[in-house]
Design a binder for these strands. Structure first.
Lengths: 229, 229
DNA sequence: GTATGTAATAACTGACAGTCATTAAATGAA
DNA sequence: TTCATTTAATGACTGTCAGTTATTACATAC
């Protein structure tokens, strides 16, 4: 292989990546509109201006393609968290900002948010390639690591109760927020109409109740001061 | 119509109900084993020793049949809660027992529990008959009413903070418990292996943190006394 | 014993995920 | 420039499955 051949090889590699992105673009439009079940590979192929067979040269199943789209959402969320965690705010402030960001993400990226529960259905995973699962898990891991490190630091600073397990605290916050937002998405209007419940408010209350319990006296003082501003 | 004819009519009615139950029996076996997606109506028909066409005389779609099975699980859960709420335990005690019962239900009826998230996916609902949705919603409503009434009573008794909305408190407890149990089901072993997290313990911590925050001083005293026994 | 209504069937249809034999295009050597 | 070879793309095809429908079998009523 000479220099020219190498250049072609690299260009092809680049074009392949580009094609993969174009396919995700098309898939995103269709999945956002109709969800996983109602979207068909033929539709996505048409939207991508490719034949269906070609899609399978780049992604090994519909579910793989679905995950590829979802990963973009995870990237967005990851970047938001990274920015917060790496800021020079105090830990208490960071925790508050992380909670708020999750709600913001829900409101401004609802279509991505709706994809996340897919991961929780183990029965779907059988359709998904091992590679994609690993890639997804890695991204997830990175996000958790950041959050857990933040909580651990809060404990070392004496802001958070150090008799708690930071991993457990992370799971509790994340899970309860996610659950309330999923409910808001699927049943929000009904609860609003029947019992005048606003889920955004409910989530605030939930976080407030949990914060009250996980903070030390020192942390709680800071928390209340911050809430007033 | 004479008396004899009426008797036949009633018998037929009875047999029809019985057939419906037999179909649910068969569906339950298949759905438990393979989940919604991987189960086929042909399999269920074979398990019920009927033709597929006959299933559609009794249930209008696969999803309807799935919900019919799920409702059995909801009945079980409903009965557990009814018994607790109607007992003569104190309100604080009832709340604790409700939380524990939910975990018990998860462990002894995991196949039913796995069906519940189906309700949270709005995209599936299009396949389900209006009638079945209504029937399901009603059962749900009854459970919520019980729980909310219990919490309201706790506030009136001065055990729970009365500046909180009992509906919101109910949603928060229910959602966070559900979320943690779903996670336990799908990712439990992985978290146990990687970070030595036990979700049953995490859920206990979560409930403890929330309880600490929602109880009044009086309620908290009772709570701690009860926890020691 | 025959007409009528009801329960059940099984062959059929349409939709869709995924495959594969074939075609078209780009590349590189002669 | 020509032609062989590799790579990308196609679209017709297959198998599966939810849901339908024309037909059959049977119980009831007269």
């Amino acid at each position: 292989m000479n220099g020219v051949a190498m250049g072609i090889h690299e260009r092809k590699e680049r074009e392949k990546e580009q094609r993969k992105e174009e396919i995700i673009d098309a898939a995103q439009r269709i999945f956002f509109e109709k969800g996983l079940i109602a979207s068909t590979m033929d539709e996505i192929a048409e939207a991508a201006e490719l034949s269906k067979g070609t899609l399978y040269l780049y992604y090994s199943s519909k579910e793989d393609l679905y995950l590829a789209v979802m990963m973009r959402g995870m990237d967005t969320l990851h970047d938001m968290y990274e920015q917060i965690v790496n800021s020079d705010d105090s830990t208490v402030e960071k925790i508050i900002r992380c909670s708020n960001s999750y709600v913001d993400f829900f409101h401004s990226n609802r279509n991505f948010f709706r994809m996340f529960p897919f991961l929780q259905n183990p029965r779907f995973h059988k359709q998904v390639s091992e590679e994609m699962i690993k890639s997804c898990g890695l991204k997830n891991q990175k996000m958790w690591d950041m959050v857990i490190a933040m909580l651990k630091k809060g404990m070392e600073e004496g802001k958070l109760r150090s008799d708690l397990n930071p991993v457990e605290v992370g799971i509790i916050f994340w899970s309860s927020s996610t659950a309330l937002l999923i409910r808001e998405d699927s049943e929000g209007p009904a609860w609003k109409a029947n019992l005048n419940i606003d889920f955004d408010h409910t989530l605030e209350v939930c976080n407030m109740l949990l914060m009250e319990s996980i903070l030390t006296d020192q942390g709680r003082k800071e928390y209340h001061a911050l809430k007033k501003t």
